[in-house]
Design a protein around this nucleic acid. Structure first.
Lengths: 232, 232, 232, 232
DNA sequence: AATGAATGAGCCTTCATTCAT
DNA sequence: AATGAATGAAGGCTCATTCAT
């Protein structure tokens, strides 16, 4: 009687599938419009459902946003085998830095959202996302801790500060990139950050001669200044 | 018959005073609720005026937000004499890092707002705030550039990446602090960041360094003090 | 304890029905208060919904206003079969003039709104209303053009100027009527306008011979029609 | 002590002069932004006074608008010596039409405002503007009346309808012009309107015409009726 | 007489959330 | 389970008008 192809069809998907669709739609919206600017209406439309349906699966908008962030970060972590197979502190650090830079460079909007913008969320520390994020960044800590333990790194900088230097730098750099103010070369920046951190932390420095020379130069400069001050 | 609650009372203030009140109210609101979450209504209520009054002095909400940020940053810059009087790359870097950490530690919400959250503002690069911010961060660049130029620093990391490492790290660190996740010691963190960056960049790595380094730094500082007392 | 006045009641209507209600409410508001002076709030209240509901169906106030105008004009055009069945330039003009006068006389506020006040709308020329309006007024042009073509009318006045004389006159006249300054007799005014325009444009008048010829032609045409009617 | 040239000076102008300034400023604003879009604030700023001052001289915005319209129209009427010196009905009509077209063509925004947009004003008929407007348009009536009286014009169209045809046509035509949709040639349009009206009204041309015309019209109408009844 | 800071009501619009169907 | 119409509170903003100074 009624034309099935014309009828407003109510597809009955399995909850898992429906949730996946919704999360995917939300992810796409976020990628396009940023955290602010995402509306439930738009997500629903993109997922091919209506707003009410969203609320069957997620109590609030925030819960959905959280789910988006978690599932994305989960995927990222699953793809990467981590640092276990890599030898050498520098190589390990470099890999972790590169991985993060690569992520932010290839999916800037979503990764910003997940890694940065979700943090102000109320109750963030109790979320699974917090845990995942922790797992993501803690590898850096682990590598640094190990290097400190083994004596390769000096002990005077806490591992968490190093983590902040790395991720903070990446975030800062990405900001400009996202705003279209500047592009950046993932490999090169990864090298540089790894170098600065590694050299800045490594305990046993190389060439003796150069080193002494420089120190002498600085001492001379200081002495000269003192002389000048007295003489002036 | 006369209804006192209905009476309309008009307190008149000089524009300067009123503007100051409004900006102060806005600043307070921002400190409490962050950039998003500030409403013109709340600002007006706090300033003891009606919304319309806000618009006498600021064409849009953004303009007001911008003013708050600018006036705050202006005050900060006015208080600090900069790096001109400080000798030695390490000392200069350390000062700039310390200054920023101190700021974010003592006024975390507002400084986050000014230094970080205002950046996505449309037309940001054309604002005075951008200029002020630039002035604020560019000192780091200048110090690094000078060190690279003189050969003290290796040339393989751009000054702007270093700036990002410093400010990014600070931001990252402050985040956790703001969220009450962790406190930090301004002096100690400043030392550490300065050390990592300096060692990571210095052209002739440390050798047995640490002691030597410290001695030199002390000598440099002494020289500076003498210089200052003579010249003052 | 339960406060009935606080209870939230949601009446659900089919979109078509709701839209019809809203458009009707808007029409009524317009009729009472004119284009300026209509507020979305008033429309919503009259339609028995809240303002937000209006925006489910119409993206902006303008869109709603436009819809009101279009649906009204559509109805008008649908009711009138036009000029196709009428013989003779004078009769055709007279009909078109009468039709417009009748409209403005019977629904002055709304028709003023539709035919006149909507014109300053931004992007008016791209709207369906523009098209409908054009269809409405272009019949006059077509009749005049045909008369000019056939030589019945002198060629010295463009059809569009004639259209302006007719509609302009009607508008002007209606103005006074709307303001309660004067009433007018639709039939009589229609006659007069048609007469002035027709006589003012007709080509023949002067020369006696031509004049007679034309009259004879018209008589013949009338006779033929009568014959046809009888014979058909 | 205080620098007089710097001091916020309170110029004390004669009321007349002040009023003139304000009215001029308002006129300029209207010309630029149209009736809607004029704000008291903008007028005050342009006149070099503050809003409060406006209200010393005009109780409401409307009163000011009215004054603007009146003073403008007064000026127009004062400049034109009218029709007294012109001989011949056609010439007189043509002059009045030309004058109006010229006005609207050269100062479209203001003249639209005065002649058209002020009419919806509450209590319009009690205003001086109404009287001035009446004087402005009544010359057309007077000319037509005289022509009807003398037998030059047929008596079947009221003078006021003719006036409406003329001014309505001009308004309609100007609308398109103001909206940038079309320009128009003042002289040419004046000629055409004068011609159509004059020929449409002149008594002589038809010769025995009138009766003939009427007979033919009746015959046509009869034919139409027969047609319709057959076809229905 | 003049100022101009301040009012306050109103406007259009957005959007997370609810709930009758 | 799914729909989607409806809500309602809030948001930014405008502007004629008032009144303490």
């Amino acid at each position: 009687m009624t034309d099935v192809s014309e009828r407003r069809s109510v597809f009955r998907l399995s909850p898992d599938r429906r949730i996946a669709d919704i999360v995917a739609a939300a992810r796409a919206e976020i990628a396009e419009k940023g955290y602010d600017g995402v509306s439930m209406q738009a997500i629903a439309a993109r997922a091919g459902v209506v707003e009410g349906t969203l609320y069957r699966f997620f109590k609030t908008k925030q819960e959905l946003m959280l789910k988006v962030a978690e599932s994305w970060l989960e995927g990222i972590l699953a793809e990467d085998s981590g640092v276990a197979s890599i030898r050498g502190t520098w190589n390990q650090l470099r890999h972790l830095i590169w991985r993060t830079l690569h992520l932010l460079h290839s999916q800037p909007a979503v990764s910003r959202f997940v890694l940065i913008e979700m943090r102000p969320t109320a109750g963030y520390r109790a979320t699974r996302l917090f845990e995942l994020n922790r797992r993501f960044t803690s590898e850096v800590r682990r590598v640094c801790d190990a290097a400190i333990q083994s004596g390769e790194f000096r002990p005077d900088a806490g591992a968490s500060l190093l983590r902040d230097m790395i991720f903070g730098c990446i975030e800062h750099h990405t900001w400009a990139f996202l705003r279209g103010e500047a592009d950046f070369n993932v490999d090169q920046v990864a090298d540089t950050i790894a170098n600065v951190i590694y050299r800045g932390m490594v305990a046993v420095p190389p060439a003796e001669g150069d080193r002494m020379e420089q120190v002498v130069a600085r001492l001379e400069a200081a002495a000269e200044r003192i002389e000048n001050s007295r003489g002036g």
